[in-house]
Amino acid sequence: MSTPVVAARGLSAGYGGQEIWGGATFEVEEGEFVAVLGPNGAGKSTLLRMLLGLIRPMSGSLEVLGEVPRRGNPAIGYVPQARTYETETAFRGVDLVRLGVDGNRWGPGRLLGSREREAGEAVRTAIEAVGASSYASRRLGQMSGGERQRLFLAQALAAEPRLLLLDEPLANLDLRNQSAMAELVGRLASSRGLTVVLVAHDVNPLRDLVDRVCYVAARGIEIGRPDEVITTGVLSRLYGAPVEVLVDSRNRRFVVGIDEELAHPHHHGAADEGAE
């Protein structure tokens, strides 16, 4: 077995000396699809930003693709929490995807000769992979949330990453689009051998797709199969408060608790964590 894509040992995160979570030891293997779950403000986005090298661990060690996380690693594709664009925005989907190929290169718009052709090809391939060919040349402001989300995904894919970090790609989508998006990510992960770490509020659209879930809450992080982690016992320990996991006839899991604020997994607040 090759080295793990993500290896965390005794990892803790925080801002300004204030710990958000700590004591996380886990590994993510090549080709794994991991969902990061947990209540608002638990530090799910913080974990992604740490993997990207945008913030440092408070303590412990973290390796991504065999090295200390560094900004600008081309092997990592990142889709932050959905950005909104006003209907006026002229920017087209294809132009957004193109930025994923060479937006970090200095110089004017077009590359020379074969490099330009290759860049165009990479953009086309990525757009086809997410099934957005029919609307990619429309303006971002005139697309639905689901259409935009697919183009953000295409932008991340265009640089051909090995590790894909997705922050709340299912937020603000209706149920049908949530499962379509989740299936698309699962399909891309398995067909391309991509490792995916996806932050979500709700495990249910992802339950049959992910290999493991990583649950982040006030008292720690637990990683494992969904039906091992999302249980009354484990979550009550992680929250440090009594919560109950209800399982319905289709094996969907719902977390309910005495403290709604802490435990409600469907809480799609406007001021999501990580917006800072």
Partner: peptide, 17 residues
Amino acid sequence: YRPLLFASVDPEVAEAR
């Protein structure tokens, strides 16, 4: 031009890149 476009339209991803 290119990085400025990136930073203008999509600052978070640009920063990560």
